[in-house]
Structure formats: C-alpha cells, structure tokens
Amino acid sequence: MTGQAKIVVWLLAVLCGLAAVGLGVVAAIADLDTAGQVASVAGSIAGLAGVALSCYTLVRPSAAGSHETAATAAGARSVAAGGSIGRAVTGDRVTLTTPPVPPAVAGISGSAQAMGERGVAAAGGVGEAFTGDDTRA
C-alpha cells in the first residue's frame, strides 16, 4: 500500500469514528428518533459514496494494467514470457513425442528476463524447457 493510500485509510477510519461518536452524542442529548433519523441520513450518504467509489474503481485503469508485461530475451535462442510457458524448445534436432506439459502456475503475468544463450524465463510457470541438442522427449 502506498503512503497516500495509508493516509486515506487512516482519514476514513478517523472520520467513521467521529461519525459514531457524533451519533452517540445525538442519541444522548436528543431523543432516539432524532438519532435514528441522523443515522439514516448518514447511512444513505455513506452508501452513495460507496457506490460512487465502486463505479470509479470499475472505470479507472487497474494497477496491474499500469505495469505492462515485460518479457526480454537477451541471448541466442533465449525465450522469455510475461506469463506461463507450456514448452520451450531451443535445441537443434530435438524430437518431441509427447504432448506439452501444462505449466505449474497459470494465469500469472509480470516481468521475465532470459539472459545468455538458450535461457528460458517466465513470470508464471514453465512446463518443460528443452535447451540441449539432439534430445528426445
């Protein structure tokens, strides 16, 4: 959580606490009918604020979307993926006889960087990686 988010959370917590104390004071000084009416109006305002915040959250760009998936492969025959890789083959004359194995972790995205010759990197899972020559799978 960023510093600004922490400040907003604390301010909202203090505001809710003050509202609760205020309603208690109204209930003690005035009668319960007045306190009930004040609580009803305060609840309506809080509900509308919640709806507005929810709508804003739905239409704004997500935090995950602001960090673009970055996959960089820097090396001969290197493979990099911002998500998962089922099978990566970088070797010469590789004979594949089996279907690819699904990656262990699916649905993850982020940054991955493969360095060096035949490097394999993924932000998610890697099912299989064949980097040698003349292999059989």
Rank of each mutant, 00 (worst) to 15 (best):
M1L: 15
I7L: 12
I7M: 10
W10T: 08
W10L: 10
W10G: 00
A13C: 06
V14N: 07
G17D: 08
A19V: 07
A20N: 09
A20I: 14
A20D: 07
V21H: 02
V21D: 03
G22R: 00
G24R: 02
V25C: 05
V26I: 13
A27H: 04
A28K: 05
A30I: 03
A30M: 12
A30F: 07
D33Y: 08
A35G: 01
G36P: 00
V38W: 04
A39C: 07
A42Q: 09
G43D: 12
I45V: 13
G47I: 05
L48G: 04
G50P: 01
G50S: 02
L53R: 06
S54F: 12
S54Q: 07
C55Q: 07
L58D: 02
A63T: 15
A63W: 08
G65C: 04
S66F: 01
E68R: 15
E68D: 14
A71F: 04
A71V: 14
A71G: 14
T72F: 09
G82I: 11
G83K: 04
I85H: 00
A88I: 07
V89C: 11
G91T: 09
R93Q: 15
R93C: 15
V94P: 00
T95E: 09
T97K: 12
T98V: 11
T98H: 07
P100Q: 14
P100L: 12
P103H: 06
P103T: 06
G107K: 08
A112D: 03
Q113A: 15
A114M: 13
E117F: 02
V120I: 10
A121L: 07
A123D: 15
A123C: 14
G124Y: 10
G125R: 05
G125T: 06
E128T: 07
T131E: 04
D133W: 10
T135P: 00
